[in-house]
């Protein structure tokens, strides 16, 4: 078992994780990834383990508002960061059962099949919409020059920006439709309003 006394071991430590607006105090084996800490210790199993090596995107979540892979991040190194998982993307103020616009779009456009990569796809998509709105270029952006006119979030841009999230069922076309719809429907604006209100 993991020792309950953090001072007893150089290889484990007591940390506080900030997840979905809540603080969780726990003692972790330093080897424990953020992914495993969420899943095995906090029972937040929406974040999935697809490859455990940063090669599939299933474990994507938001760290300090940016999408990250939780399988390559040590839990002990995540202390002090604000972590948002699929269980928290609808927002802390959200009513019971209320969905984030990106979640709603995935549901309506059938942007998944088996559902296993879905939490990662959704967390990634939320960030993609914000990254694009913030003017970040992508490999699909023709001209990265900062003076170049902003390019719309075309299907090609969505595909490139979402490429770190593999979907073996091959639901890509439905996912892209869902992301495009959510972007047009103002998922970003909603998210920003939330931020402003917070």
């Amino acid at each position: 078992m993991i020792t309950s006394d953090p001072t007893a071991s150089q290889t484990a430590g007591a940390i506080i994780l900030h997840v979905n607006g809540e603080k969780h105090a726990l003692t972790v084996d330093h080897r424990t990834t953020l992914l495993d800490a969420l899943r095995e210790r906090l029972d937040l199993t929406g974040t999935k383990k697809g490859c455990d090596h940063g090669q599939c995107g299933a474990c994507t979540l938001l760290v300090d508002g940016r999408r990250s892979l939780s399988c390559l991040q040590l839990a002990v190194a995540a202390e002090g960061r604000e972590i948002t998982t699929i269980e928290g993307v609808a927002g802390q103020g959200a009513d019971e059962g209320e969905l984030h616009p990106v979640q709603q779009a995935f549901l309506e456009f059938d942007g998944f099949q088996c559902g296993y990569c879905t939490p990662g796809q959704i967390c990634s998509a939320i960030a993609v919409i914000e990254e694009h709105a913030a003017g970040w270029p992508s490999a699909a952006t023709g001209d990265v020059h900062p003076g170049a006119p902003p390019e719309p979030l075309t299907p090609e841009e969505i595909r490139e920006r979402m490429s770190g999230n593999l979907c073996r069922c091959g639901a890509y076309t439905s996912i892209v439709r869902a992301v495009a719809h959510a972007a047009e429907a103002g998922a970003v604006r909603d998210a920003r309003d939330e931020e402003a209100a917070a």
Binding site: L44, K49, L99, F106, D110, F112, G115, T118, P119, I122
Partner: peptide
């Protein structure tokens, strides 16, 4: 839309692990 769709987009669907 899928019967279990809401569970899958919210991370509530429990797979074996």
């Amino acid at each position: 839309t899928r019967v279990e769709g809401r569970e899958k987009v919210t991370g509530a669907a429990r797979y074996t692990g």
